[in-house]
Nucleic acid binder design. Structure first.
Lengths: 210, 210
DNA sequence: CTTATATACAACCGATCGGTCGTTAATGTA
DNA sequence: TACATTAACGACCGATCGGTTGTATATAAG
């Protein structure tokens, strides 16, 4: 298990396939994505997948995992550099919008597409997606709770309520911007959360004016 | 063109098929929906579709049209009975949440599913969906503008901005409620808009407290 | 060196996809 | 009555779907 040569090559191609799978699924969905097209996009053969995954569902589950790591890396981790409290809450929102704006994924948001695809379809993939979204929402809520504890948000704020609002206002930005074109939607999403936080913050100077 | 007998039967089955197509597409999407399964669900033969529609895309376009009419009937029309102004704006939001809560469509929301499916896929269906969503957003914005004109919302309110917020907060409710179960998400969506409107309304007595 | 394992492949499988064709029967039109 | 149209169907088409099998080969383990 020295993790080189053959083993390493396997890991590399596995990761390259997952990277492609997440990118393609952000456009066509995890089910809409076909193994044949994924093979073509990665330059490998279709049957080669089954050396890495038992069936399509296993690949879908690993793709969700990979997308979650990617989200953590691009959105969660950079945010933790901001000071805890209301500034970090807003930094979280801005990091998400930047993720969309930068076009990290060709479809904008993996989880938006996959949520819409699986929210009505019971199964392992749905459960894994629900868990990932639950963890994300829990993280947002935790940041809100910290801000309340620090006195940077009004004491009567319901953290779960505010976390829902931040998530909804951010998540719909990607679809609006793609469907109606332009960055106006991203601006709306940014302003919505900013105004909401400033209204709830005893010291609005912690946040940008606009 | 006396519209009876054969002609009438054609119209009836056409409408029955569209009704089923919208319902199924709210779960599996317009592309995920297959003609074979649609035939099974409507008790007709697959090849019979092509007497009504040239190809699948034509059926998809008509399904979008049908879903838009259904949305108008269930959400827009009832709302117009409320007095213009901030009360109608909130009534609009509540009518949408009731649409989800009542389970009018098995998948919750046709347009949410279809938006996620087509926002990255150029073509006639995407354009038709974008138009429908644009009209809806425009309607919401118009109601906000009326409320501002009536002095029931603060004069510095940006109608497009507020319309985005109302739409985003309402639309994400259906996914959250289905993925994480329970009506808490619907409550969050309701409260979010209610608090926002009350904060912007010179006479909060026009709106319920909670 | 030997042997088991893991990567990757081409060829192939049954099922299903969207779609075509030819036909039947009921209806609308003249 | 004569004829064109329409709804609806079963049978069938090539393409693609997820998945299986057998094989070649490079590596890891003994």
């Amino acid at each position: 298990m020295t993790q080189d040569g053959r083993r390493l090559r396997g890991l590399r191609s596995r990761e390259a396939i997952l990277e492609q799978a997440v990118a393609l699924a952000s456009v066509e969905g995890l089910d809409g994505l076909s193994l044949g097209r994924l093979a073509a996009a990665t330059g490998t053969s279709k049957s080669g997948f089954f050396a890495h995954w038992r069936d399509k569902e296993q690949l879908q589950l690993d793709a969700v995992e990979w997308a979650a790591r990617q989200w953590t890396e691009h959105v969660v981790v950079p945010t933790l550099r901001a000071p805890a409290g209301v500034r970090r809450v807003f930094a979280l929102h801005e990091a998400r919008l930047r993720f969309y704006e930068d076009g990290v994924l060709p479809g904008g948001c993996f989880f938006f597409t996959v949520q819409a695809e699986f929210d009505d379809r019971p199964g392992a993939v749905r459960d894994r997606v629900a868990r990932a979204m639950g963890e994300w929402l829990g993280f947002v809520r935790h940041q809100v709770e910290q801000a309340v504890a620090l006195g940077e948000l009004a004491g009567d704020v319901d953290p779960a309520q505010l976390a829902y609002e931040i998530d909804a206002l951010g998540e719909m930005a990607v679809v609006h911007s793609r469907l109606h074109g332009g960055e106006l939607s991203l601006l709306h999403a940014r302003r919505a959360v900013l105004q909401r936080l400033r209204a709830l913050c005893p010291d609005p100077a912690l946040l940008p004016e606009d």
